[in-house]
Design a protein around this nucleic acid. Sequence first.
DNA 1: CGCGATTTGTGCACGCCTTCACAAGCGAAT
DNA 2: ATTCGCTTGTGAAGGCGTGCACAAATCGCG
Lengths: 239, 239
Amino acid sequence: MARLPEYLRALHNLAESGHDTVSSEGLAAAAGVNSAKLRKDLSHLGSYGTRGVGYDVDLLIEQIEYVLGLTQRRAVALVGVGNLGHALAGYAGFASRGFRIAALIDADPAQVGEEINGLVVRHIDELEQIASEESIAIGVIATPAAAAQGVADQLVAVGVTSILNFAPCVLGVPEGVDVRKVDLAIELQILSFHEHRKASLTALPGVFAGTGTEDAAAKGLRRPAGGTKPAGTAEAVGS
Amino acid sequence: MARLPEYLRALHNLAESGHDTVSSEGLAAAAGVNSAKLRKDLSHLGSYGTRGVGYDVDLLIEQIEYVLGLTQRRAVALVGVGNLGHALAGYAGFASRGFRIAALIDADPAQVGEEINGLVVRHIDELEQIASEESIAIGVIATPAAAAQGVADQLVAVGVTSILNFAPCVLGVPEGVDVRKVDLAIELQILSFHEHRKASLTALPGVFAGTGTEDAAAKGLRRPAGGTKPAGTAEAVGS
DNA sequence: CGCGATTTGTGCACGCCTTCACAAGCGAAT
DNA sequence: ATTCGCTTGTGAAGGCGTGCACAAATCGCG
């Protein structure tokens, strides 16, 4: 399930807040989902809750991290050290959540050699050697769209089986390779769509009256726990 | 539908490639979806195709942009000019796809006054004045998690009704406000999950045999058009 | 003018995900 | 030891999205 990471983050927050156990209701609120959904999700990976009490926070964290394969600290190769690439290279959240940026790669010779966060940018032609030095399973593509497919091909060629793509294009990869895409402009366009809907909703009620983007469980909830705790881990990219 | 922006991007690519019309099959391949799904999606916003021919590219672009509310260039306020904030402030894709970053905001006095891409960073206490200068409907939060909820509250207070949240936390907002969340670490964790599944799949076939992240339509497809076109718009963030 | 090739638009069925509601189980208090 | 309150785990119903398959419609060509 794609919600497990969200649960995991909420659990880590709760653990730091000193909670030993948590009810499905409480955890669901912290993760912004329905409690029944959460229970069903957790039941899929075994019975780790105690009726009448709730879930043992530490045990649940352990289990989820195992299922997500976070027991081993996976090495990530980041291709494209441009605008976004720089930000990603300095993102503390990667390290704090089980990942290690093992290589910074770019095709521009002008970028090669630069040191970012203690890591030197290497040229993409060295990719094969880089892959032989470390077992790289995940590649992150932060290049222009025109270069993304080529980079993806090269990553696949050296054995990468999971790709996180920030370039605004569709990647074609052989079966067995997973691709996830994050397109920042598309996120804004979706919000724009909702804005447009809200604006014309007063005039034409019932048109495109789909659900909002927020989960119903979180609607109208003020401060659903986690996020405003006194001293957060402050693992965000921002300021 | 959340797929319209993807169609729009594919259409723009096709338009630049000189295509006047496109079949649902062709556009579906470019967008990485099923053709029936695409036709159904497009039918929801009216009949803009011609049987036996296909869709008029320019007309379809116009229609989708209207539905998405991109006819007006929306003003976006970016809060949190840190690591990621800098990258977002310099992201050309926002401007090229219908958005205008109208304000850069931070809470850290050390950041205030800095000029990024021709825009001066202002303090968040000026938010009310900033909102009165320009009609800001969309806010982007790129702050640490601990500050995100507070910023969201302030944005909502000055009339922002759509928020794009990069901080790893759940935001509570009043009804009528849309929130979309992008958590970079979660994306990696989902990929890690698939890696873990693939690794243990050889030993325990049938365990967690869910679908992959790629659409079935795109599986095994090499270069599904759009992305490796000769001279792309190169609107990505990366290098 | 008619016919065939092609493509859109859509009815229908299937399957997944979500949600409700409740029985089963656990701990605490008496 | 028993009862009571609380919470998990799950059966069942409902809704929604997906994809197939086909009828309707349009263009080009003879």
